[in-house]
Each structure stands twice: as structure tokens, then as C-alpha cells.
Amino acid sequence: MALLIAELDPTGIFDLGNTSLIFWEVITFLILLFLLIRYVYPPIRNQIRERQAQIERSIDEAEKTRAEARELLAEYRRQIEEARGEGRRILEDARKQAEAQRERTKKEAREEGDRIIQRAREEIDREREAAVREVRREVADMVIQASEQVIGRSIDRDEHERLISQALDDLEAEVAGATAGDGSETA
């Protein structure tokens, strides 16, 4: 071995076969390897693994949170949509109600008006009848007075009134007949 080394490296410049260096190198390197593999790498490996697990957990959690947030958002959107629908419905109802109310009020007003007109008409009729009756009585009185003055004596008032009334009735009937005749003629 020593001869081989001497032949390979005659000047000694390569420092082949430096036994002390080789010996201590092997010892040192083996101890270093042992220490590193036993005491250094496991904690680093565990730390990295733990952090990896932690990051994975965080990512999972973040994803879960995001999903939850998305659900919540959807829920809120749905609620808003619902509220909007509700609002629309309420508005619609209110409009319908108002419409109905207006219709009802209009109808009531019309009915009221009709009633008032009816009443007025009845009143007018009544007034007219009263007026006719009054005119009749006035006419009868005037006729009796005139007749008394013409005849120069009083006449039986009741008899007279009956006669006048009959005459007026006849007149009325005649007038009615004439209008009916007109009507028939026009028809």
C-alpha cells in the first residue's frame, strides 16, 4: 500500500495516504452523521410536517369559512328577494284595497246622490201636488166667489165645490186624453 502510494505520488504533492487525516475523517464524519440524523433532522422534519399540517388545516378552515360565507350571502340574498316580494305584494294589496275603497266610495256617493235626487223628486212631486191642490182650491174659491157675484146669491158651497171638482177632473181627464191622443198620434 505504502509502495503503491509512493509510486502514484512520488513527490508527495498529492498527500495520498495521509493516514491521520483519513482516520480522523472517518471517525469525525461518522459521529457527525450520527449526531445529525439522531438529534437534528427529526425535530426539523417534525416542525415542517407540523407546519404543513397546520397550513392544511388553515386552508381547510378558510375554505369552510368561505363556503359558510357564500351560504350566508345566498341566504341574505334570498331574504332580500323575499322582502322585496313581500313589499311588492303589500303594495299591490294596498293598491287593490285603495281601488276597492275608491270604487266603494264612488258607488256610495252615487247611491247617495241617487237617493238625494229621489228624495228631491219626491219632494217636488209632493210640493207640486200640494201646489195643484192649492191652485185647485184657489180656483174653486175664485169660481164660487165669481159665481156668487154673478148670480148674486150664495150657493151651496159643498154642492158647488163638488161640481167644480168634477169639472176640473173632467178637464184634467180631457187634458190627459189630449196628451194621450197626441202620444198615440205621434206614435
Binding site: 469525525t28 464524519f29 459521529i31 457527525l32 449526531l35 445529525l36 438529534y39 437534528v40 433532522y41 425535530p43 426539523i44 416542525q47
Partner: peptide
């Protein structure tokens, strides 16, 4: 060897 060990060892204890 000592420097090698210390660099990594100190690193592994300050995690």
C-alpha cells in the same frame, strides 16, 4: 464538523 453540527443543531432547537 463542529460548525456543521452547530449550524443545524441550533437551527433545530430554535424551531
Amino acid at each position: 464538523a463542529a460548525v456543521t453540527f452547530l449550524i443545524l443543531f441550533v437551527g433545530s432547537r430554535l424551531l
